[in-house]
Nucleic acid binder design. Structure first.
Lengths: 143, 143
DNA sequence: ACCTTTAGGACCTTTTTTGTCTTCTTATAT
DNA sequence: ATATAAGAAGACAAAAAAGGTCCTAAAGGT
């Protein structure tokens, strides 16, 4: 019933990336460990982590000693990247897609409003890095 | 796949309210007429209109000559009210609800970010009235 | 060889979305 | 009174999306 809600997948993705960001640089983490610590179903998290690898947020290696780690420093990863990696682009209204996808009024007056909504969301999410979310000190991330 | 998307119900709601707002003050419109003009399934629209009545956005009357009309002038109805009437409150993250609903870290550092996202969305949607969306003149609604 | 770990995808269940349909109530017209 | 014309309410159903499991394959380490 709540609108514009983040899905569980998105929430799990954030938990997962935060876990990775909390590990010392160079550490490789196992899906099982991340899942347990983050309280996320293991097989579901595995898929999320693979999506991270696919979009270049994480790297993985197989076999003994294998696992996942961040592909970049946490201060070079924004919250938006993490969320969009698993949820797709932020598009509050279908009409914000390319031309032709909106069957009705192309010149509809509502479109620019949704565009503004989108821009605001993106701007907030782009303004927060994973490193900021992990930091213990309470520097106010809301600027 | 797209995130934060308005549902069809929300889109239909906007089409419906815009139709009502375009009618001369005092006009009563039939569900069937609104549905046809707005290209929305009639029975579905009927439910949406009833929700409008329930939250006080529209009034209705039955029998011959009955139908729906706006309960207030269109410049006293914001886009947010319309969307929330059918989609519920705008809450990008479950944790923005009251206390206790977030099982994990209450002091989670991600929460304030979602709160900011919510505030931004609400502020954009609150800043647009139905009257502005209906006006023909191209005064820039994006301020 | 054998074990460990991710990769990929088929598959399933539950919930939400998107409707339809029937019955009831209210109001008007004749 | 009776017929007719609406909306009100809610049961029901199909389709899509979300949430999650499981199995097999591939790659890397011992």
């Amino acid at each position: 019933m709540e609108m514009m809600e983040l899905t569980r997948k998105g929430e799990y993705a954030i938990r997962g990336i935060l876990y990775l960001a909390r590990q010392p640089r160079g550490t490789v983490s196992l899906v099982g460990d991340i899942a347990q610590a983050s309280e996320v179903p293991k097989t579901f998290l595995a898929k999320i982590l693979r999506e991270f690898v696919k979009v270049g947020l994480a790297t993985s290696s197989r076999g003994t000693g294998g696992g996942f780690s961040l592909a970049r420093p946490a201060d070079c990863i924004t919250l938006r990247e993490v969320v969009e990696a698993v949820e797709g682009p932020i598009l509050p209204n279908r009409c914000l897609l390319g031309t032709g996808t909106c069957e009705r009024d192309v010149t509809c007056r509502v479109h620019p409003v949704w565009k503004k909504v989108r821009d605001q969301i993106v701007s907030v999410l782009d303004g927060v890095t994973i490193a900021e979310l992990v930091r213990e000190d309470d520097g106010d991330i809301l600027k």
